[in-house]
Amino acid sequence: MPADPMSPEPAPTGAHAASLDRDAADGAVRRPARTALQDVPWEVGVAKPDPAVVVDGVTRTFGGLTAVSVDHLEIQRGGITGLIGPNGAGKTTLFNLLTGFDAPNRGTWTFDGRSLAGLAPHKVARLGVVRTFQLTKALSRLTVLQNMLLGAQGQKGERFFGALLPGAWRGQERANTDKAMELLRRFKLDTKKDDFAGTLSGGQRKLLEMARALMSDPRVVMLDEPMAGVNPALTQSLLGHVKDLREQGMTVIFVEHDMDVVRDISDWVVVMAAGRVIAEGPPESISQNQAVVDAYLGAHHDAPLTVEEEDRVLAQAEREIAREEHVADGEILSSDVPPEERTDR
């Protein structure tokens, strides 16, 4: 199964992968993950040199529908992994499973060798795996700054009785505020700090959600369609921020539909379709991959159509149209409408 989607290509390891990497030669220095991954074969379920997240046999069904069925998947530490696939491929469900928002029917998954199975979402977040949501969850009736401060971890003032002793948390609050303001400046939201988050535009909310996630000093950031609905100018700055995360040593997993974006920033791309991982590899490998093309466009989208076949299809279509008209005529005849009026219609 893993080698099957690759059949049109020779085993693309070693020199081939290295030549692809030379295209992005200037980026190679700043992309340790890309360098580490260059000798990894382009196979589904392939082992990575230094995996942060490992998924094993995770299956989630909703009634008869298998939303996710991933046999084996490893996510390289310190890299940007793009997760793509057609609508309904199970990308968001996989995110939900990995972060504890949903529980799989079976399977194990670990972060840094620690099993995350059965952990509540807040415990997963405390371990350093923080996610954002496809539909942005800005906390509308809190100010931008309050949104940010919520992201800070280990706050003494968040305990009920601790809250009543302002002396105990004021210093921590001040430090968190400084950190939040620095992040807001980076994301160009500092002038909005006292506005309600509900008054921000869609793109600004995406920025705020990402900045808020960073307040918790995460080790793995999972971004669910961070660019969806964001205008192109803002997309560029968002991309910059995502690359920054890698620079700071974070592991980034993101879902995205825009292939230009995926090609631009990801070190490794995982393609899902119908709940399964159907291909893995560096971004350059994906668009040539037959399984991926089939998943997106249908398996027979480019099968050549002969003249006879075309005639046959055309004839069948005409027959169907004729039959429908006949049925319609029948209905009209049975009513009180005189036959002459039919021609006008």
Binding site: H122, V130, L139, Q146, L150, Q153, G157, G162, A163, P166
Partner: peptide, 29 residues
């Protein structure tokens, strides 16, 4: 008044806005 100006109050008001966002930030909702 004391509770709602503290970080505890912030968490609680965030839960009113969106529980899942608060969970994703490591709070036991």
């Amino acid at each position: 008044w004391a509770l709602m100006r503290s970080p505890w109050g912030r968490v609680v008001r965030s839960i009113r806005e969106d529980e899942d966002a608060v969970r994703a930030l490591g709070k036991n909702v």
